[in-house]
Amino acid sequence: MIESRLFKIIYYLMEKGQATALELAEKFEVSVRTIYRDIDRISGAGVPVYSVAGRSGGIRLLDRFVLEKSLLSEEEMRDILFGLQSLAAVQNSDMETVLSKLRAAFQMADTSWIEVDVSRWGSDPERERMDFNVLKQAVMARRQIHFKYYGSNGIASERDCHPYRLIYKDKAWYLYAWCLVREDFRLFRLSRIKEIVLTGILFDRIPEGTEPDLTRWEKEREPVSVVLRFPKEAASRVYDVFDDRVVTECDGELTVRAVMPDNEWLYGFLMSFGDKVTVLSPLSLKREVEKRLKSALQHYEENR
């Protein structure tokens, strides 16, 4: 228990820079006297921690202090390397230098058990890395960007945004930004962002405690309970999307019972299966898919 708190104090000071004894006592729910005893233990273990007197003083670590590798377990070291390797997949080659240094520091040469590549099939990986780095630079430097964006309706629009965060969710990268056109926060899928321009206009960070809920867009979607049937040959795509718990196999077919967003993505997803999916319910969804398939067929018949 004590050892765990000591490590947490070290991590807290590394993150915050410094803290008062009272702040640490409230953070870890112990007395100020206990915190001072903990600081003595940390110092006695060779960690360069010291106190600065005065109104702006506090407890802090020596500048540029880093944890020794002996304080990390092998699993933690592998997790660190895995995280950096994931970042290397979307950033420039300089990340490989960092990885090489950490492999040497951790004495772990064998990291070839995994390969991370988040670029899309058929895409230009170098182009995607360049765009990602422009967006990362905009977020870090708080610089306004301009780009063309293709919405789910296929219509392109010009956007001016204040980018706040890059998010990886459900096999895709998104940009979380304040859109000056819509005057609201928006989630932009990176694959639909084109012609990015990094401007010289600076903006302020979001004030503390006012960041909006990132799950807002999921809550705004109207969900629908669907029952779908797929032939066995579609199993690979079915399991790419659905969890095993919502899939039932019987007589060579797969039945999926799931709650999904009732939007354009759902229609496009179902139509992408062609004749390899049957919508069993709801009836309204089945009718809508039928109508769209007939429209697509008519389009091809008119353009023979």
Rank of each mutant, 00 (worst) to 15 (best):
F185L: 04
S281R: 12
G209P: 01
T215V: 07
E222W: 04
Y239F: 05
C161R: 01
G268S: 01
S51N: 12
R287E: 14
D251W: 00
V227C: 14
K27M: 10
A109W: 10
E220H: 07
A19L: 03
V279G: 06
L187P: 03
V277S: 06
W178R: 00
G83D: 05
V32P: 00
A105P: 11
F273D: 02
K101H: 15
G83I: 14
D275G: 13
H162D: 15
W121A: 10
E76Y: 07
L198W: 03
A109G: 15
R127F: 10
F273M: 04
N303A: 15
S73R: 07
I145G: 04
V247S: 01
K101V: 09
K148C: 10
V47H: 00
P231Q: 04
G17R: 10
D40H: 14
N133P: 09
Q144P: 09
S56W: 14
G154L: 09
L22K: 14
E183Q: 14
I145V: 09
S281I: 12
Q85W: 00
R55L: 13
D184E: 10
M1C: 07
V259S: 09
I35C: 04
F106C: 05
I167Y: 00
K194Y: 04
D184M: 12
E195W: 01
Y174S: 03
W178T: 07
G17K: 05
A234I: 04
R287S: 10
M108V: 12
L285F: 09
K232F: 03
E68T: 14
W217R: 06
H146T: 11
V246E: 01
R129K: 15
S73N: 11
S100W: 12
S152V: 14
V134C: 10
P125M: 09
L293H: 08
H146A: 12
V118T: 15
L99V: 01
P48T: 12
P48L: 09
E96H: 15
M140L: 15
T210H: 04
I193A: 01
L228T: 02
I2S: 14
Y150M: 15
W265V: 00
L67A: 00
